[in-house]
Amino acid sequence: MGEAPLDPEHALPCGRTIGELLDHLAGEAPEDFGAHVRTCPHCRAALAELAPTGWEPVRRAAELAVEPPEGLVSRALLTVRGARAAAGGEPAEVAQEFGTLRISAQATLVLARRLSAELLADVPEARLLSCTGDVREVRVDVVIGYGVPAPALTARLQDDLGRALREHLGAAAPSVWVRVADVAPPQGS
């Protein structure tokens, strides 16, 4: 029969589709379909190609508890908190000649992300992972290559980003914290 196509709409010579077979493998097909599969040579041949050892190993693997990677939960929560603060946080206010300029937390984060990406564009061994916070504080997480001097890079980025934010926002510029969130393995390993 050759390799079974994965197009769920592909019809077998018996009139059944690959999608119906996949539903059967997942345990979601009607009971009468199981009876058809047991007697139909076309469905049995397609099933043998779709799941040569059956789906039992996949089902067992799906039942295993998996711990999230180190730091994933905290990074996700920081992002959610940052989005929530950006959506409803108090704006920063800057007095100007003709009134007060209000700068939202969302605008502050967008600017901080753009500036961080621009500053890191000159550093090929580092990349921006996340930028969260509000109008008072911006937290930047970076991924650096193995062997890069992390303290020097984070200090430089923190200083440069703080300076750039002060140039754009003046007294409303937030404080900046830069953290190495991950280290990438050396190229070729």
Rank of each mutant, 00 (worst) to 15 (best):
E70H: 05
F33Q: 00
L64Q: 15
A86V: 03
E31C: 07
V58I: 09
P52I: 12
A45D: 09
W55F: 14
S74M: 10
D32C: 06
S74W: 09
T79V: 06
L78D: 12
G54M: 03
L77A: 13
L64I: 10
P68H: 02
P41G: 04
A61Q: 08
G54C: 04
R59E: 08
R59S: 11
E70P: 13
S74H: 07
A46T: 03
R44I: 02
L64T: 15
R84T: 09
A51F: 03
T53I: 12
R81H: 14
P41Q: 00
A83Q: 11
A51W: 01
V58G: 10
H36S: 05
P41D: 01
R60S: 09
A62K: 15
G34R: 07
R60M: 12
P69M: 08
A76V: 04
R81S: 10
L78C: 10
G71I: 07
C43S: 00
C40V: 02
L47V: 00
E31L: 11
P30Y: 01
V80C: 12
R75C: 11
V66Q: 14
A83G: 09
R60K: 13
P30F: 01
P69K: 05
L50E: 01
V37W: 01
R44P: 05
A48R: 08
R44W: 15
L72I: 09
H36F: 02
G54I: 01
C43Y: 02
G71M: 09
G34C: 13
A86C: 01
R84Q: 15
A65L: 13
A45W: 00
H42R: 06
G34N: 11
E56Y: 11
A86Q: 00
E67T: 13
S74V: 11
C40S: 03
P41C: 04
A61H: 13
G54E: 06
A86G: 01
R44K: 08
A48Q: 06
L47E: 00
E31H: 14
P41W: 14
D32H: 06
T39L: 15
H42N: 03
E67L: 10
A48S: 13
A65T: 08
T53K: 06
E70D: 13
A46R: 02
E67F: 07
V80R: 10
D32T: 08
R84H: 13
P69E: 10
C40R: 03
R44N: 06
E63T: 08
V73A: 14
P68T: 04
A83E: 07
T39Q: 15
E56C: 05
H36E: 07
A61T: 02
E63Y: 02
P68I: 03
A85Q: 15
A61F: 09
W55E: 06
E67K: 10
R59G: 07
L50T: 02
R60N: 11
V58S: 11
R44T: 06
P68A: 01
L78F: 11
R44L: 05
H36K: 07
R84S: 14
L64D: 13
V58D: 12
E31N: 13
A83S: 10
H36N: 06
W55S: 15
A45F: 02
E31S: 08
A35Y: 05
T79W: 10
A35F: 04
R38Y: 12
L47S: 04
A61V: 02
L72N: 06
R44V: 04
